[in-house]
């Protein structure tokens, strides 16, 4: 049997508003159905249980929004990316929006950093927040296997903070490499009870040279 020629299309999209309450598994299913509805020539795996080849660069956690997220989808034909972006976008719910599509420049594993806007509901000032996060940042980090206290400060590339009405806007750039991903919620955990709530929006994904991942 001749191997099937596949074309990987990279879709840049946003997950906003109420979509932040949707888990990654549910997001995957939603995107899958949108792709089917889009009418694009989708590639299906050739096994017993055919499925799409759909890969997300770095899914945001529940309760977080993303202004910049990427997924790759394998197609059977080389299509016009702009038309594909339009087709997928019209098949997505309102809170999920495609910004653009293109053929990939880099691999997902070249992802190194991600930037965030974190709107903290707190009585702390920007200066205090910056001060607290300047030294060691020891938090309890949970993984599937274990729970340990680690210093996450090496995973914070940079951060700025700004006073705003009702709190502080924190803008960190955090490690997002496949083997060293830091969930921004740990910063909130570290700040403790003084933060009553936090709206987190991921703003960009970067490669090692701090160029937007494309």
């Amino acid at each position: 049997m001749q191997p099937i020629v596949k074309y990987t299309l990279r879709v840049c999209w946003q997950k906003k508003g109420n979509a932040k309450y949707i888990s990654h598994l549910d997001t995957q299913r939603t995107v899958t159905r949108a792709l089917v509805r889009s009418g694009l020539p989708l590639y299906y795996s050739q096994g017993y249980n055919p499925h799409l080849k759909l890969v997300f660069a770095l899914p945001v956690s529940m309760y977080q929004e993303a202004l910049y997220d990427l997924f790759d989808i394998d197609l059977l034909e080389r299509v016009d990316p702009a038309a594909a972006a339009e087709a997928i976008n019209s098949a997505l719910p309102e809170d999920m929006t495609v910004i653009s599509a293109a053929y990939p420049v880099k691999k997902f594993k070249e992802l190194v950093f991600a930037s965030y806007d974190m709107r903290l509901d707190t009585a702390l000032s920007a200066a205090e927040v910056t001060e607290m996060l300047a030294g060691e940042v020891r938090v309890e980090k949970k993984s599937k296997k274990k729970c340990q206290v680690v210093d996450i400060s090496p995973m914070i590339k940079s951060l700025t903070a700004e006073d705003t009405e009702g709190g502080v806007i924190l803008r960190p750039v955090l490690s997002a490499a496949p083997d060293a991903y830091l969930n921004p919620k740990y910063l909130v955990d570290f700040l403790g009870d003084k933060v009553k709530g936090c709206d987190t929006v991921r703003t960009m994904l970067f490669d090692g040279d701090m160029e937007p991942l494309k």
């Binding site: 109420n18 309450y21 949108a34 529940m62 098949a91 719910p93 309102e94």
Partner: peptide, 11 residues
């Protein structure tokens, strides 16, 4: 929480 927010495709 997705049960309580609406906003699904086709709403």
């Amino acid at each position: 929480p997705g049960r309580y927010t609406g906003g699904e495709y086709g709403e």
